[in-house]
């Protein structure tokens, strides 16, 4: 029988290997991404790739300008945030301060459950119910538009935003709240002038992680955004976000062709954008921790 010290050591090594594995996967993904994607930048140039207005990858000569795709992604993301941020933050305030404890333990898990629904189901809902509805309301030639995608993605981002924002609000020490109330502040004054400012960076983290979910979503935008690679002039036209392009085109693209590298090029752009958002979220989280713990 081996002694407990050796056992401890073995368990430690196994855990280390597992912990290390995600770093290995991440590194692997990054290496593949850049290895397959960088050739396109040599071919068309970074500026031309990002700011080119024409995405015609299979023509002769092919054109690899991803601006319409980038614009599609950004428009849908901004729209989704316009939907999700107000609803998300007000829900979080309501859950954190107004709802009785007993109901809070029901409502919060239900909101979080919204996040467990697979995106293809959101897509079906958007395609079959929301799109025809918007088509009627606005008298559009087609209901699959940036707005449709933005609304659905906004709903999809809600669980992340509500849950994390509520955590941030609840993490504000109750002494802050008590002090404000004791000084004669009303409940709304306490929430808007004391708690929200304290929790700002935590709420920013919540919003940014919500954005991360939206910008990376593929299935829903593939189903409801319409898929036209034009630079959108309004919310009511079809768009083709970056993720949808990659998913739609990869299957039939000859491996190793310029088009194939261009799709990986888009993936690099997408990866850098989400990485940036995650770094900002991390920094905001740090500053929030400092604020509430006073260190």
């Amino acid at each position: 029988m081996i002694n407990w010290r050796a056992k401890e050591k073995i368990v430690q090594i196994i855990l280390l290997l597992f912990a290390f594995s995600s770093i290995v996967f991440l590194t692997g993904i990054i290496i593949v991404l850049f290895k397959e994607g960088l050739p396109i930048f040599q071919k068309v140039g970074l500026i031309e790739f990002i700011f080119g207005k024409e995405w015609y990858p299979t023509y002769y000569p092919p054109e690899f300008g991803i601006l319409p795709l980038l614009a599609g992604s950004l428009l849908v993301t901004v729209g989704a945030m316009l939907v999700a941020i107000p609803i998300g933050i007000f829900s979080a305030i309501f859950i954190a301060f107004i709802l009785p404890e007993r109901l809070k333990n029901v409502v919060k898990p239900v909101v979080e459950l919204l996040g467990a629904i697979p995106s293809v189901i959101y897509g079906l809902f958007g395609m079959k119910i929301l799109a025809p509805f918007l088509q009627d309301v606005f008298g559009l030639p087609i209901g699959l538009t940036a707005l449709t995608a933005a609304i659905i993605l906004g709903i999809m981002a809600l669980p992340t935003i509500v849950s994390l924002a509520e955590d941030a609000l609840s993490a504000v020490p109750s002494s802050y709240r008590d002090a404000s109330l004791a000084l004669g502040g009303t409940r709304w004054e306490t929430i808007s002038r004391v708690i929200l400012p304290t929790a700002t960076s935590g709420i920013i983290t919540a919003i940014i992680l919500g954005i991360g979910r939206v910008i990376g979503d593929t299935m829903t935008v593939l189903m409801v955004a319409g898929g036209a690679a034009v630079i959108p002039e309004s919310f009511l036209v079809p768009v083709r976000p970056m993720t949808a392009s990659i998913a739609a085109e990869m299957g039939e693209t000859p491996v190793g062709s310029a088009h194939y590298h261009a799709l990986f090029g888009i993936a690099i752009v997408l990866f850098l954008i989400t990485l940036l958002f995650n770094i900002i979220a991390d920094l905001a989280q740090e500053s929030f921790k400092k604020k509430v713990t006073g260190r």
Binding site: T58, I142, A228, A229, E249, T253
Partner: peptide, 28 residues
């Protein structure tokens, strides 16, 4: 979408190599 086989044939026979309008909705 521009990499589908159906599209390529359509492009060759009907469009004769001209570009589909960028406003077209691409389905997979």
């Amino acid at each position: 979408d521009s990499s589908s086989g159906t599209f390529e044939v359509f492009e060759e026979i009907v469009l004769e190599g001209e570009k589909v309008t960028a406003g077209a909705l691409l389905q997979t």
